[in-house]
């Protein structure tokens, strides 16, 4: 079978579909001081999954506020700096008006995913940490 690390080089999704790949990518991102990009991407996916689970509206609101406070509110954070102002203000409105929608972070996740696909992921595939691993 194809070794996992070869599959990781096929696409960002194939990398993020494997725990060992995620671990190695996170180690690389931490070296680049931008591990929040990956955590935010997973937090958005986890938030969307809540809809399918029987979790309370209160917990959804608490989580939406936690994601907003940790990754978007602080304009100096790596995630906040990469998301478009219009996307940030949409999320702020949702949190302030308590309009907690499962898809409220989708656009922000897409923008961060595009950044990773076009920038950090290709650099990771050329990084020492990945080449040493392979």
């Amino acid at each position: 079978p194809t070794p996992p690390y070869v599959k990781w080089a096929e696409s960002l999704h194939s990398l993020l579909d494997d725990q060992d790949g995620i671990q190695l990518f996170r180690t690389f991102l931490r070296q680049e001081d931008c591990a929040d990009l990956l955590d935010f991407w997973f937090a958005c996916s986890g938030f969307r999954k809540l809809e399918a689970s029987e979790c309370s509206e209160e917990k959804k609101l608490k989580l939406a506020k936690a994601i907003y406070k940790k990754y978007i509110l602080d304009n100096n954070g790596i995630v906040s700096r990469q998301i478009k102002p219009a996307t940030k203000s949409f999320i702020k409105d949702c949190v302030m008006k308590l309009h907690i929608d499962p898809a409220m972070f989708d656009q922000a996740q897409t923008e961060i995913q595009t950044l990773m696909e076009e920038n950090t992921y290709p650099v990771f595939l050329k990084s020492d940490i990945y080449l040493e691993y392979t």
């Binding site: 725990q19 997973f42 406070k69 940790k70």
Partner: peptide, 20 residues
């Protein structure tokens, strides 16, 4: 703050793929 960080961590972990 702890409970917010715990909530975030739980959310991030819930989106992770299961160990193959």
């Amino acid at each position: 703050i702890d409970s917010e960080d715990d909530l975030l961590q739980e959310c991030i972990s819930s989106a992770m793929p299961k160990k193959k």
